[in-house]
């Protein structure tokens, strides 16, 4: 700067100089609306990143992308062997309903579970990316949830085959799967955003979350019917059954079961089930997004 000729800018403080030439603070957090706009501008990146992750996952395996379908199938088989055959958890549910009931539960819950788990690591596991390139950080957790959604669609192929094998054939009610999964996707993404921020501060969460998620899974009636099972236990208060049934994981599982399985009728569902499903999606989606955005400028610090 020693060689600079005298200019009218001499004597201005850095902040005044920045203002005069319209410079903005680097790395500052944009407003909420501007943030949504930026995110929309990166939609192609979000989709491409999720598909790339999905493809990369099995690219070294000999069977390749076939594992997308085989993995959920094996999962369903394990749960059926343990809970359907060994523990006989189907009490209260007819035989031809139980298997699709169980498999639907496993797949739908896995969708939420893996979205949360990948959400926890979405920032802390991609610090290289966060520190090298500029993009709205919410792209990462959203992209990971999207990857899980695509994974679920592969599982749905298996699910449809199993459901039809047990005597439920496609009807118009199958279309209800779409709004149910859409709501669940919004809910999952919100949760992933929340855990992405928590995980970026405390990477240890990645070790803790499997236990939390497992507890949640067993409490949500993945492999048994909550009202039937809890009605037989007199020591538990009556309201507990309602609370467990209203929890988001149980709600979304029940909706997909109701849509796909002929004999899983409305009598198994809690009251106002669609309203609750919508409520959970909105609460988690909005709260998660705002919570994540609040810390936007701090992601990437050591």
């Amino acid at each position: 700067m020693s060689a600079a000729p005298p200019s009218p800018d001499d004597g201005l403080s850095p902040a005044q100089l920045a203002e005069k030439y319209g410079l903005s603070v680097s790395g500052a957090r944009p407003g909420l609306l501007a943030y949504v706009k930026q995110l929309w501008g990166r939609r192609h990146f979000i989709v491409a990143f999720s598909q790339a992750k999905l493809t990369a996952q099995y690219s070294q395996a000999k069977l390749g992308q076939l594992w997308q379908v085989v993995t959920p199938l094996l999962n369903a088989a394990v749960y059926f062997f343990i809970f359907g055959v060994l523990l006989d958890a189907k009490r209260g549910i007819p035989e031809h309903v139980y298997v699709p009931f169980l498999v639907t539960g496993v797949f739908v819950f896995t969708f939420t579970q893996s979205s949360v788990m990948s959400g926890v690591r979405s920032i802390s596991g991609n610090l290289g990316l966060v520190r090298a390139l500029h993009f709205p950080r919410a792209s990462l957790p959203i992209s990971f949830s999207l990857q899980q959604l695509q994974q679920l669609l592969f599982s749905m192929i298996v699910l449809v085959a199993i459901v039809m094998g047990f005597g439920s054939y496609p009807t118009w009610s199958w279309l209800l799967v779409l709004p149910a999964l859409a709501l669940q996707f919004v809910f999952n993404t919100g949760l992933a955003l929340i855990f992405a921020r928590l995980g970026s501060k405390t990477p240890d969460l990645a070790q803790l979350m499997p236990f939390v998620m497992r507890t949640w899974m067993y409490a949500s009636g993945v492999m048994f019917s909550i009202p039937v099972m809890l009605a037989r236990n007199d020591r538990l208060p009556h309201w507990l059954s309602d609370v467990l049934q209203w929890n988001p994981a149980a709600i979304y599982m029940d909706l997909v079961r109701f849509a796909l399985i002929d004999d899983y009728t409305a009598k198994y569902l809690p009251a106002h089930v669609w309203a609750i499903a919508l409520g959970w999606a909105l609460v988690a989606g909005v709260a998660g997004f705002v919570y994540f955005w609040k810390s936007e400028e701090r992601y990437g610090r050591g």
């Binding site: 680097s26 790395g27 500052a28 520190r131 390139l133 500029h134 400028e297 990437g300």
Partner: peptide, 8 residues
Amino acid sequence: KAVAGLLP
């Protein structure tokens, strides 16, 4: 990295 806005 700080100039690029990548490190707070």
